[in-house]
Design a protein around this nucleic acid. Structure first.
Length: 258
DNA sequence: ATGGCATTTAAAAAATGA
């Protein structure tokens, strides 16, 4: 089973790129982030015509996540949103069971500028995610937590670490939160397959960042322990970042044995 | 240290992203 995650940065502006990528990469399950569209304006029909069913959690203007699965698979929705803050109306989390695997699709807050209320929100959101992650591990079922974490876990994941030390994506508190989450018992799938390689999943639109390979690794796959032996392959669809009218993120994927 | 670009909303300019 091939599972992919892709921060599209606007599902409507990105539709041609997303449709082409779905056809070429052909993942069985897809987690999308940053739809930037209310539910009623999401191009559901066009995406379904490429052979996918989906559950959508949109929001006007910002955020928005979705889980897609090939037509032959069932999507059993478990929850939308994380517990712990009834005031939070941002669409950033969607969870479903597909093919006996729990899929958590997340878009963690950016958090800039830091320090400040947005950074506080990021850290609180991280705590709520970690709480849900711990619950899922206790259920002893296969779980994939994937999406845009907005964290570079280590210096290896940033083209120029010294420039990012005070940024909300790289500050010590955030790296520590990610480290503590992984320490619950999760596996960073990309790093398991590629322990040393430089792999980036985001390239700024500015200053030819993609051409200069000045990127960040912020889109991640965390796997529960029982999926370790099922991880066959992982990778990024690097070329998609070079397409016309493309997202600033790159699709990331893993392949699980049945 | 700043600004470079892209998207959405909504009709110019602001907010957000990373």
């Amino acid at each position: 089973m091939k599972i992919a995650t892709y921060n599209v940065n606007g599902i409507n502006a990105r539709l041609p790129v997303v449709l082409r990528w779905l056809k070429e990469s052909s993942p069985d399950v897809v987690c999308l982030q940053e739809l930037k569209s209310p539910d009623e304006k999401i191009p559901k029909t066009e995406i379904e015509k490429t052979g996918y069913k989906a559950i959508w959690h949109g929001q006007k203007r910002w955020n928005g996540v979705a889980i897609l699965a090939k037509e032959n698979l069932e999507i059993q929705e478990m929850s939308r949103g994380l517990e712990g803050d009834p005031e939070d109306i941002q669409s950033r989390y969607l969870e479903a069971v597909i093919n006996d695997v729990v899929i958590g699709c997340l878009y963690l807050p950016n958090g800039n500028p830091a320090p400040g209320p947005k950074f506080d929100y990021k850290l609180r959101w991280f705590e709520r995610l970690s709480k849900r992650a711990k619950e899922l591990l206790e259920h002893d079922v296969p779980v994939v937590l994937t999406g845009d974490y907005n964290v570079m876990p280590t210096e290896k994941d940033v083209y120029k670490p010294e420039r990012w030390v005070n940024d909300a994506l790289f500050r010590p508190e955030v790296r520590e939160a990610f480290h503590n989450l992984v320490a619950q018992g999760w596996t960073d799938a990309i790093r398991k397959i590629y322990p040393e390689e430089t792999i980036y999943t985001f390239f700024d639109y500015f200053r030819n960042a993609y051409q200069r390979n000045a990127g960040l690794r912020i889109d991640h796959f965390l796997l529960s322990p029982d999926l370790n032996d099922r991880l066959k392959a992982a990778g990024i669809d690097h070329d998609v970042r070079g397409w016309e009218k493309t997202s600033d993120h790159v699709p990331v994927w893993i392949e699980l044995a049945e």
